[in-house]
Amino acid sequence: MTSKHRSAPRPRGWVWLVGLLAAAASVGCGGGRADHVIARRVEGELPRMDPVAAAWDDAPEFEATLQPQNVVAPQLAEGSVSRVRVRALHDGTWVAVRLEWDDATDDHNVTTSTFSDACAVQFPTGREVRPSPMMGNDGAPVDIVYFRAAWQTTDNMGELYPNMPPIYHPAEAAAEGEPREQMALQYQPATHAGNPTVVRPDGASVVAFSAAGFGSLSPTEGHFAVQGHGEYREGHWYVVLAREIGDASSAPLAPGQRTAVAVAIWNGSHGEVGSRKNRSDWLDLEIEGGGS
């Protein structure tokens, strides 16, 4: 064994250097690093649904630190994600934030005591007052764009229980229209009630919320549109969370403005859900102006 190890060629110093450069290129540091989040303007298509699009390579990267939510109960005693790499782009009408973090497991199923990996970004809603970074506060609400990996899973039950025999469900067997509505009221109450995390337009993997403090996550009633998508690749999550900028005269996200963004990450296999999360403080966000 020893002789075999000795005979193995050792890489020269320049090989490591080339490797490092190649690795840097592969993770796309073309946009360089920044000391705050800069949403660079793109002239072409904004990658609202593609977290690994080449366009992200041109966005500067900001590495934010996260801390466990340990202010209100139930708390996260120990954090599991301490850093998240943040990039942002905009096209004048939408702004998209791409989060990248390390995670050893791809948790995209939910059942009892099994939780999904998830992330969210939040934005202040006014220019004057900076809300609490912990989901805003009374009188100072925040907009939230929330992604859950489980919302991308098309057959959660099939993946969890591959040997489950076909089961007759009266709600699914009922005729379309009123009969099925009635069955849903009885057997699929969350669907019937229009729960925004259950009834998502086009099965979207991101949902828009408003909040004004812990425990106040509420639907936005179509206040702003959102899109997004996540990809898990070799121990990393890449997730894009995009939202409409809205009315530039009142929105703090208007091009040329400096505002803020905050990030939350949930590691499902660490039992993180709801208020048990890794969160950032407010991060400075610059929406680059210029262009058409």
Binding site: T111, N156, M157, Q188, A190
Partner: peptide, 21 residues
């Protein structure tokens, strides 16, 4: 979030993996 599943000592709140609530 399943905090109720955790909190009820009689375990009479159930998580629905199909709906997610």
């Amino acid at each position: 979030y399943q905090e109720c599943v955790r909190g009820c000592p009689y375990k009479k709140v159930f998580f629905n993996p199909h709906s997610g609530v």
